[in-house]
């Protein structure tokens, strides 16, 4: 059984849905920022990001793959020559969705979806490192105590060795925590 598409369906049929998403992607790459309903923005995001990944690859095959979705050659040209180089440093997360409240006519929740054109800030890496360090510092005393309790007699000799042994698993355990925190930040 084929995996169903994630998210709600759009339009009157599969072809209509494809057209809606293709048109949304075209206007997004043309204007850099579009206002649409939250649902459409959420459906557009994975498609647009995949197209940008193709654009970053940059070869003729990738260009032809993109052209099957975005029919406008000039838009594809800007995507490959202008948008893709700005995203070179970025590893995914090329678009950003911000909710902007409900529409007047039908109270539909609206959102702005835009290309993230800012350069990747080195700040995020620094913050991650700092968080790792703090969690490490918090965990170390606790880990030491348990180690001491386990082998109390040669405690004086064992502690330096135990410390070095503890460091590697502690770092491994912290990595997912830090990643989860980073993910939360990017989502918010």
């Amino acid at each position: 059984m084929p995996t169903p598409t994630k998210g709600p369906r759009l339009g009157g049929g599969p072809a209509h849905e494809r057209l809606i998403l293709a048109n949304l992607a075209t206007s997004l790459f043309e204007h850099g920022r579009i206002t649409t309903t939250e649902t459409k923005a959420k459906r557009l995001r994975p498609l647009a990001e995949r197209l940008i990944t193709f654009a970053k690859r940059g070869d003729l095959a990738a260009r032809r793959r993109v052209l099957t979705v975005v029919r406008d050659k000039s838009v594809v040209h800007t995507l490959f020559t202008e948008i893709a180089p700005t995203m070179a440093e970025r590893q995914g997360g090329y678009t950003r969705i911000t909710k902007v409240g409900n529409r007047k006519g039908d109270n539909a929740p609206m959102a702005v979806i835009e290309l993230v054109l800012e350069p990747v800030s080195p700040k995020q890496a620094v913050v991650k490192e700092a968080e790792k360090a703090t969690t490490k510092a918090a965990k170390k005393p606790a880990a030491k105590k348990t180690a001491k309790a386990a082998d109390e007699k040669p405690a004086a000799e064992e502690t330096p060795a135990a410390e070095s042994a503890e460091e590697t698993p502690a770092v491994e355990a912290e990595a997912p925590v830090a990643e989860a925190a980073a993910e939360e930040k990017s989502e918010a």
């Binding site: 909710k99 902007v100 409240g101 702005v112």
Partner: peptide
């Protein structure tokens, strides 16, 4: 509203 751009000043 939380997680939404401000309706009075438009910032998020």
């Amino acid at each position: 509203l939380s997680h939404t751009a401000c309706p009075t000043c438009g910032t998020y």
